[in-house]
Design a protein around this nucleic acid. Sequence first.
DNA 1: AGGTATTCACATGAAACTATTCTCTGAGTTAGG
DNA 2: TAACTCAGAGAATAGTTTCATGTGAATACCTGT
Length: 399
Amino acid sequence: MKISSFFDNFLKKNTIFLNKEALQSSYLPDKVLYREEQIMEVANILAPSLRIEKPSNLFIFGKTGTGKTLTVKHLLTQLQQTAQKNNISLKTVYINCKLKRVADTEYRLIAQLIKEFNQHIPPTGLPTDEVYNIFYSLLDKKRQVVLLVLDEIDQLTKKIGDEILYNLTRINSELKNAQLCLIGISNRLVFSDNLDPRIKSSLSQEEIIFPPYNAFQIQTILKERAHHAFQPNTVKSGVIEKCAAYAAREHGDARRAIDILRIAGELADRSASPHIEIYHLDDAEKKIEHDRVINITIDQPKQFQSVLYSIILIAHQKEIFFTGEIYDLYKKICQKTKLSILTQRRVSDIIAELDMLGLINAKIISKGRYGRTREISLALTKDITIKLKEIMEKALSLA
DNA sequence: AGGTATTCACATGAAACTATTCTCTGAGTTAGG
DNA sequence: TAACTCAGAGAATAGTTTCATGTGAATACCTGT
């Protein structure tokens, strides 16, 4: 078959999508369902910014996929519009602290902030306080309120401590004209517990908790999105319900539900099926997990992959195993591949990371007289494991 | 038997080091006037 | 003399290493009955 005719066919083929964007995670719907209460609360807290008064700092908690980001973004745009209409100098900045190489360190966070003010900051080479100073003067240039949203703020402090937050909360006392209001968003409810008390008190002047959606709510949300995203009558009955049930099982994560629905749509589309069937959902769920695992591992350093490879090899033979066994095998693999051998200390950390990523299950146990170690088992399905093994053999250029 | 002390095999923490990537600075060099 | 080049100093960062300290409970080692 000629490739050109393939593309021709591709264009002619009718798709079940009407507007796929409605299912993308970047999509901002016109209205945020079932979050009226929270929206009002946040709106009340942030409203003073329209009068160039500093609103209270705000902290938002809630599990993934409970609409935190959506709500805040929604409100920010509304605020912006109102401000613009009435000629109020209000600036809103949204920053996701989790983004690698964008805002995951103190330096980069500030650099990113400066970028929001249309100034370029080199990625390295400048001292951090220099960057702070630029930021200060930029902020203070005119009388204004700046709303700074830090999404996934827990990721930031986990990595580099809470000093930045302290600096940011302290900024206001050094500013003459401008006012900075912080809005933190965190997935973890316990986040503020292990924060410096000073920061905690100034940051959590107001706290709002976003409860998970229930199955019914997710259903409505999905229907709404599906209505925008798909051609009419392409979603078989029961699909939305099943999808919602999936997500409700996982603490009401709407984002996940939407992802599954989108992937299911893509799968149906690709197989030229005129409808989305229930089995597409199952396939989608598998594919999501599959892609996640592959994507995580593929751009990890070689050393990381070697450790994972050792684990996979051992997992072939037994269900559960320990740090020491992995390290021994890992050493052998390193010799074979001529990689330098990392210390056990480091490998221990890598294993902890693998646990965090959900690729393995690790639990610290004490075997009494025979020491203390991690009890480890692989947390992946057979076919993913096999695929992963292939990928890593290629990456490590093993036979 | 019952109680205490050891001991193993790591876990966990902190600090310091290494290599890489990047900027800025200022000395030296070049080319044009 | 102005413009250019280029080495060196200083930063930020990821990934490690080094050194130090922590830890839970199965065993070893008492103790007195």
